[in-house]
Design a protein around this nucleic acid. Structure first.
Lengths: 211, 211
DNA sequence: TCAGAAATTGAACTTTTCGTCAACTTATTC
DNA sequence: GAATAAGTTGACGAAAAGTTCAATTTCTGA
């Protein structure tokens, strides 16, 4: 078998399996997921799934790793270094776009955290800490420069994370709260506006000049 | 067996089972939970668990029902009819206290939603809708009265719900974000202040008089 | 004290699930 | 076109899980 073709078949099947696994793991959690269900959802026989992955653990770890890598790529350009108002707005918009277009990945992450984050590697957790610390520093620099009012940067970031993630993880609740209909782009736009406007209105100083 | 004593034994064992079940279901989800694990966590033999509950489904439904009832009792006094600033502050504080003192119940609810909310009864979902609708009406009345600025009431409520629930459901992430230590009361106080202050600062009009 | 109700529990039964394997087909290289 | 590597798959064994049951113990009211 020629190398390129080999890679194509393998890559395609691995992707199919991970797509299916992400969906099932997100819904039922690690312990609740049956390999058979992943196999059916990916359109491959169970034994073929085992041809590509050694165990359920392996599939789960691979799905988590892929999800974190995907988030990184999607969010790495959303730096908080520019104008605070624009930075917060872009961040909220980008995260809500992820919640809209990739809710399954978000739910898998939520499930892993509910499990106690046992499968997150120390490297992955350190990465999350680093990203947070970097942004905390940016926000505190903004505060020092008088661009935004005094605020607890860590809790502010948590609030933004929570508000945007909620639309992916708690979609049934959000649907009920918005009037029992499917969520559309307009809903995510409205959410972005509400979150950004409310937070920015509280953060941007009105009466004081930057020092 | 005398009626009162009978009730006492039954009630005590049912509570033990539901306590254990809530913890395990919250961590592993419905499909991932083993009856044996509930039995061990409750200190009863597996067959004794089946003496009180007919099936795994029954235990799960009972745990969900109890959790919603508990939330109701804890939150029913947090009406939004008073002064907006005080109402929002009290609501945020109360929900964060729940996140602090009963994170397991919160996580069980999160897991049920991730599952697709299949086990929530129509009655329970309607109750959530009713509570939301009532508060939306209150907020819109405040807007009409000029007590707060124009805002999408439904997304505002979602933002408050998300920000407060996050501290229970995503505790490992929150810990990492706050510097890798266990969460204490002071952290929840700081969170309440950050959420309430930021949102209120954006909501309370500064330049305009109420009409 | 004693009859009957409630509660307890070890063991068994049935079904499901993980993971393996050997046989088979398809693709690739020379 | 033959040899070899990659991919496919039905069937199976071992282990685990949900549920039941019958036998036993504990409790309670009279």
């Amino acid at each position: 078998m020629e190398k390129l073709q080999e890679e194509r078949i393998r890559t395609r099947n691995v992707r199919r399996i991970l797509d299916a696994a992400t969906e099932v793991f997100a819904r039922k959690g690690f312990d609740g997921t049956r390999i058979t269900e992943i196999a059916e959802a990916s359109g491959l026989p169970k034994a073929n799934v085992y041809y590509y992955f050694g165990s359920k653990d392996d599939i789960y770890r691979a799905a988590i790793a892929r999800l974190i890598q995907g988030w990184d790529e999607a969010l790495e350009e959303i730096a908080l270094e520019k104008d605070p108002a624009e930075a917060f707005t872009r961040y909220v918009t980008a995260k809500l776009r992820l919640s809209h277009q990739h809710p399954t990945e978000s739910r898998l992450f939520a499930n892993e955290i509910l499990r106690g984050a046992e499968f997150l590697t120390e490297q992955e957790r350190k990465h999350i800490r680093d990203v947070t610390n970097y942004r905390v520093a940016v926000i505190e620099a903004w505060i020092a420069a008088g661009k935004i009012v005094q605020v607890d940067a860590r809790h502010l970031l948590i609030m933004l994370w929570a508000a945007t993630q909620f639309y992916a993880d708690f979609q049934p609740v959000v649907r009920d709260a918005l009037g029992n209909r499917n969520l559309e782009s307009a809903d995510f736009d409205a959410a972005a506006r509400c979150i950004a406007d409310t937070i920015l209105a509280g953060l941007i100083p009105r009466d004081s000049e930057p020092t």
